[in-house]
Simulated assay, not measured.
Amino acid sequence: RLRRLSLIAEYDLRNKKDFGRFIGQDMHIKLFHLHPGLIVGLWKKSPEIAFVMGTLHYHQLLEKSFLGSTESPYIFPPHIPILDDIDPEYGLHGYQLHIDMYSGSRTFLCRTFRGLFCRKEYIKNGHLRIAAIGLRNHKRHASLAGKVDFLWETLTLSGSIQNCFTMDVTVLDESEAPYWCFSAPVQLCESKSLETCYDFMGQNFDLNYKDDMGRIHAELIWMKEAEEYYVINLVLYLNTEKVNSYFGTNYTDSPVD
């Protein structure tokens, strides 16, 4: 009996000059990410594909895998907002963040943050600012365990790309329903900020990711003595229009002081 196939995503890999977002490189390959959920490695010495990898978040993956057809992906029914005219800050509080940073079977960080919120005065530039780890909250600072790199392998060669890994993010709303989910490769880049945090002595790195739902910004310190990265700042920025559409609210940017 033939198993039913369901189309999840389509990619055009013929244009080798446009392979999406550049992630990192080593002496053999360049790594790119195509939304949604495809990692492509290109040989540096020739414009040929070395390997492809899938990176799909598990939320609604079963529906995507079985309810579509070979010609078209499954279309989810539109979200219907649950209105609340009692809570004046509905949609601003009660968030949870679960974050995994890993490469293959190696996990660098796995943490859950509960009770996250955004004050109305922190709604700026079209985003809700929600802090999961703050610079001054040392108890929430987290280290990345082990050597941080992205492992790859082909039939003839293998290697690793330093400071790159896969990040899975799950943001739940107040009712613990998934609000924003993704799985994507990311890179740690040396910070270009001129600001210095004198509480920490080490090299500064930034991690950034963004899509239509929002963006994530993290600041890390490389502690040479311990040979570990420490996450000292982790902030979610949720797209205000998406939040309003999801909750049936009407939040706008806070007035500039």
Results as ranks from 00 to 15, higher is better:
residue 140 R to T: 08
residue 128 L to S: 02
residue 195 E to Q: 09
residue 75 I to T: 05
residue 51 F to S: 06
residue 213 M to W: 15
residue 162 Q to N: 01
residue 125 N to V: 06
residue 18 D to I: 00
residue 20 G to L: 12
residue 213 M to F: 15
residue 90 Y to L: 07
residue 257 D to G: 07
residue 207 L to H: 14
residue 50 A to G: 03
residue 169 V to A: 07
residue 54 G to H: 01
residue 133 I to C: 10
residue 118 C to H: 07
residue 34 L to M: 02
residue 202 G to S: 13
residue 167 M to D: 01
residue 234 L to G: 06
residue 23 I to N: 11
residue 124 K to D: 14
residue 94 G to S: 13
residue 93 H to Q: 12
residue 105 S to E: 02
residue 114 R to E: 14
residue 115 G to S: 05
residue 99 I to L: 04
residue 101 M to K: 09
residue 151 L to P: 01
residue 217 H to A: 13
residue 215 R to S: 10
residue 234 L to A: 06
residue 218 A to Y: 07
residue 100 D to S: 03
residue 36 P to Q: 12
residue 201 M to C: 12
residue 149 D to R: 02
residue 170 T to E: 02
residue 85 D to K: 11
residue 199 D to H: 05
residue 119 R to Q: 00
residue 252 T to R: 12
residue 105 S to Y: 04
residue 136 R to I: 15
residue 103 S to L: 08
residue 234 L to E: 06
residue 231 V to P: 01
residue 216 I to M: 15
residue 253 D to Y: 13
residue 47 P to F: 03
residue 99 I to T: 02
residue 91 G to A: 06
residue 171 V to F: 07
residue 153 E to S: 15
residue 150 F to H: 14
residue 21 R to N: 10
residue 84 D to L: 00
residue 72 S to H: 06
residue 256 V to S: 09
residue 115 G to L: 04
residue 113 F to Y: 15
residue 91 G to R: 06
residue 168 D to P: 08
residue 128 L to D: 03
residue 60 Q to H: 09
residue 106 R to T: 04
residue 207 L to N: 11
residue 207 L to V: 14
residue 5 L to P: 03
residue 214 G to I: 07
residue 129 R to I: 06
residue 253 D to F: 14
residue 97 L to A: 10
residue 247 F to D: 08
residue 28 H to Q: 00
residue 254 S to Y: 14
residue 118 C to Y: 09
residue 89 E to H: 10
residue 145 A to M: 11
residue 38 L to N: 09
residue 114 R to S: 13
